[in-house]
Nucleic acid binder design. Sequence first.
DNA 1: TATTGTTATACTCTATAACTATA
DNA 2: TATAGTTATAGAGTATAACAATA
Lengths: 157, 157
Amino acid sequence: MPRATAATQSRSLTEDRESDLEGFVGYNLKRAYLVFSADFRRALGRHGFGPRQFSALSLIVQFPQITQSELARKLGIERSGLVAIVDELEGRGFVARMPVPGDRRVQALAATKDGRTAYLHAREVVRSHEETLLSDLTPDELDTLNGVLRKIRESEA
Amino acid sequence: MPRATAATQSRSLTEDRESDLEGFVGYNLKRAYLVFSADFRRALGRHGFGPRQFSALSLIVQFPQITQSELARKLGIERSGLVAIVDELEGRGFVARMPVPGDRRVQALAATKDGRTAYLHAREVVRSHEETLLSDLTPDELDTLNGVLRKIRESEA
DNA sequence: TATTGTTATACTCTATAACTATA
DNA sequence: TATAGTTATAGAGTATAACAATA
């Protein structure tokens, strides 16, 4: 059971202290996600990458010839939503849509040389941005965080 | 499942036990947040509460006579974005805007009796939804998660 | 019939800028 | 001048539904 201690009473009303809201994991998760999201944009915005472009390119680099449907599945979004992301990556010359022999419905995705180079650079920027944001965490806390986030995701039906 | 294709056209970019993407805390945070967000809606949608309405009402109940500017600050959103949220809560009879003697620019917010009742009920639904989502976590993991999320939020400038 | 990629559309959440009425 | 609340607007991000081409 969550703790709604009586200590709240003695706290000032004008300063941010414990509140019901702060006790909810979902709310804290959202706020932490927004911190990461905003900092990601600050760090990678000038490189022309939003979070979605980066995520998609990462998987395309790592899974050459992945189809759009499969990529959407891995990203947890709808196929329709992926079109604009791939359009943009293709427009920047980072990704190419390629026909697949044997099934003409499918478009396989492949990163170009430019795409791979841009990804490797962006990846280092992301690592640096995460390192800064997580610098207050102990290695144990970091391990637990990653494990817990994974557990939560895997609980998804 | 990591796809351990030993023979790839280009050299592997990673330790290839898992994808680059899964190694980024920001990405895992986002996916976990989306799991919570979707389940929140499933659990509270029929009660007429979205996450924002719930968060705002929670703080209004807990900080009676809070102003809109102060509430927006606590929620980490802009004043302008709060207007629609308060409009909706007011339209449902959960919240009242009240004039403040001495400064006619300010609207203080107060939960009605209905609002407090609705909040207390919704709070239990949220607790139940979180308990289910977090049932695979040990108490230690849960404590660490909460502490870490707080640390991340507090690192925000 | 089912699936892939696509378009059209709408909804949520949020931010920016400008307005009004106060201070 | 500055602040509180508000309006208008725009931009991500996502979902649903439908369509054409292909299986």
